[in-house]
Amino acid sequence: MTTSGGTTQEPESAQYLAARLQRALAEDARTTEQGVRVTVRGEHVLLSGDVACAERRTEVEAVVHEAAPGLQVLNDVRVVPVGEPVGQEEIR
């Protein structure tokens, strides 16, 4: 695994890059997110999943941008809804 923040001489393979970014989101104290998926396509990094509030949506994008500054981050992460449920499921 490279530790050079995406600035290695040779292009980092998409597979290693995605793994490095996924670990950054889980292990960086600012995010500790395991519920955000990272998909690397060419020069784009797609983030998807749900977080608990809008601030965290911004934080995951910042951590990924910091770890891979040369790539464009597409942030599809959503803030999870917390409304009252409608109806209930009967289990018999």
């Binding site: 519920g35 999943g49 749900d50 608990a52 999870v80 809804p81 917390v82 409304g83 009252e84 449920p85 409608v86 109806g87 209930q88 499921e89 009967e90 289990i91 018999r92």
Partner: peptide, 21 residues
Amino acid sequence: VRVRNVAQPIIRTAYTVYDVR
């Protein structure tokens, strides 16, 4: 036995309700 995954990103509400007999 019925199993329910109630992770909030799955249920997408504050909580979900099961009426169990």
